[in-house]
Design a protein around this nucleic acid. Structure first.
Lengths: 119, 119
DNA sequence: CTGAATCCCTGCCGATACTG
DNA sequence: CAGTATCGGCAGGGATTCAG
């Protein structure tokens, strides 16, 4: 963390903390964008336990459709949260594993859990 | 926090941490629901600085429309994040201030900032 | 097995106009 | 001043079908 402004304790001393409209360069927006969308946190939770294949994820989250699962995984790969490893041979198999950056979402989700669990 | 499960380190030992589909009772979903929607984090940021009236918020976030601002404020009041205080007399004036629970969103936003700022 | 393509439905968000 | 009412555009998400 950088140091705090004197006038606004608790807010980062960064120009992006002073924007007056939503912008993709704001770190808070970035994180919320990674987490955005139904099923997203559950997919991440499953992969925090262990790396899984497409089908294993489907079995873990039976009500999640193929299309949405593929969307979520592609989204996370694009953000550098997930690594996708195709296995050669037949039948095809693709393993999904969190990157180091992705694994650091664990504490973030814990923070969200704790606040939501308050009161 | 409660203690951790042995088999799944880093995940809360709570039935709600094992759900297989999105549910409103999950604390993570609760927090993300509070934070959901465009402009929401900026509105909260403004109120973390100091309590403000409707018009002061409009001035702080000029591109935010009346309707959406009213929606966001009502949403936050309903979640117990904001307290709404009507001043008697004319012209009408309504002050919005974070509750203690709402003020604890400061560290949550900081966590989101830090992760999004990584790399 | 691991997706991509398509269709449809819903809910969000913005703009505008209006009221106590 | 502090909202509400109404409308329309657009993107998200689910079901189904098809392909490498």
């Amino acid at each position: 963390m950088t140091h705090q402004t004197v006038g606004h304790p608790g807010l980062p001393d960064d120009p992006r903390a002073a924007v007056t409209e939503p912008t993709p360069s704001c770190p808070v927006e970035i994180t919320l964008d990674v987490l955005r969308g139904r099923w997203m946190t559950l997919v991440i939770r499953e992969l925090l336990r262990e790396e899984l294949s497409f089908t294993e994820l489907r079995q873990a989250l039976p009500s999640l459709s193929d299309k949405v699962l593929a969307d979520r995984l592609a989204h996370l790969v694009q953000w550098g949260v997930l690594e996708r490893r195709r296995q050669p041979g037949w039948p095809p198999r693709t393993q999904y594993a969190l990157t180091p950056h992705g694994r650091r979402l664990g504490p973030v989700l814990q923070t969200l859990w704790d606040w939501g669990n308050e009161l």
